[in-house]
Structure formats: C-alpha cells, structure tokens
C-alpha cells in the first residue's frame, strides 16, 4: 500500500462532504442545519412543554372543576389549587386560584393524563423567558387559560378525538335528558290514588 494513498482516500471523503454541502439537499449529505430564529422545524404533535388550562368559547366556562387530582398527581408538586365559593359560601365547580410554578414543572404530562375533565393539556410554546424566577415564572389561572381552538390548532388529532368524545357524551346526555323529559311527560296523569 503506497505511503500516501490512505491519506488521499480520507481527503476525498471530506472533499465530497464539502462539495455536497453546496449542491446536495439536506437529506442526501448536504447541510441540514435549520437556521433557528428565521426558519423553524415544525414541532411534533406530541411535543410537551408547560401545561395550560382549556376553556370552551369564553374564558369564563373553564373546563377545570378544581377537583385537585392533578395537584395530587404532580410529581414535583408545582400545582396549587383553591376552590371558588359563591357568595353564600357554597362551593363552586371552578378554581379561584390555579397556580403552576414553571420553574418547578418538569413537563412530564402526568397532569394531562390524570385529569378526568380534559381541562389541562401540555403546550407547544417553549420560548418562555421571565426577568426573575420568583413571581414572573409563577403562572396564575388567567395566564394559563387557552381556548379550545388553540388546542385544536396545535394538537389536531388529540383535540379532535377529545372533542368527538365530548360531543358524543353530550348527545348521549341530551338524549338521556330528552328521554327522561319524554318519560316524565308520558306519565303526567298518575292513576288516581286508590281510595
């Protein structure tokens, strides 16, 4: 094996890579770097970042009923919920305070799985920066609220499945309600009581 041939073979490999970087596409050995701020790679659907609370149509009708399951399930314990009470003191199915400490949250997504009311989901938006750790990174209920349309936009398949399931449950409930109403109307005249 002549003295320099190994070196020349190696050099040709790098030369091919050098030329490929100009003429080949990203998948045939060319340059595949995506220049981040200007151009972005689309996030995968199941990409998880910090959680957010879901509302239908208007921020008032929140799906979350403050059942506190996610706060109990959360491994690093970064969710803090206080139930809302109406004026007479009766408990309401709404959280008055719903805080998530983003410095503690580890984006594990357990709260999303644990939530029986499809109220909390993992977001795709990761460019979050706060001037200081203490109060700016502690997100309150209103900061966490996001609409269902946004949820459909970022996670179409999951959102679609959840919406379908809820609509179906809705119909079943409406049907049952209608059925119950019909049942109530069909026997309005109970037989006269036997004397």
């Amino acid at each position: 094996m002549i003295f320099g041939t190994g070196i020349i073979k190696g050099m040709l490999v790098t030369l091919k890579a050098f030329l490929a970087s100009y003429f080949k596409g990203p998948h045939e050995g060319g340059i595949f770097t995506v220049e981040y701020p200007e151009k972005r790679l689309a996030e995968k659907e199941r990409f998880r970042n910090f959680p957010f609370l879901l509302y239908d149509q208007t921020p008032e009708n929140l799906r979350c009923v403050a059942c506190d399951i996610c706060a109990k399930e959360c491994p690093p314990k970064c969710i803090y919920i206080v139930r809302d009470f109406d004026k007479e003191g009766r408990p309401l199915k709404r959280p008055a305070i719903f805080d998530i400490d983003f410095t503690v949250c580890m984006n594990c997504g357990i709260c999303e799985e644990a939530c029986p009311f499809d109220a909390i989901f993992m977001d795709h938006e990761f460019e979050i920066a706060g001037p200081d750790r203490q109060n700016k990174m502690l997100y309150h209920r209103d900061d966490l609220l996001k609409s269902n349309e946004y949820f459909n936009k970022i996670r179409p398949t999951d959102a679609g499945a959840i919406d379908a399931r809820r609509r179906e449950a809705e119909e079943k409930k409406k049907a049952a309600a209608a059925q119950a109403v019909k049942a109530k109307t069909t026997q309005p005249q109970p037989e006269p009581p036997k004397t």
């Binding site: 890579a17 970087s21 050995g29 060319g30 770097t33 220049e35």
Partner: peptide, 13 residues
C-alpha cells in the same frame, strides 16, 4: 467556513 462545510454545517454567518 470551509471546515464547517466539511462537517455538514454552515460556519459563521
């Protein structure tokens, strides 16, 4: 730039 291009990256731009 050249060493970058040889390693399939762009180099300072």
């Amino acid at each position: 730039k050249v060493v970058g291009r040889m390693q399939n990256r762009i180099g300072p731009n």
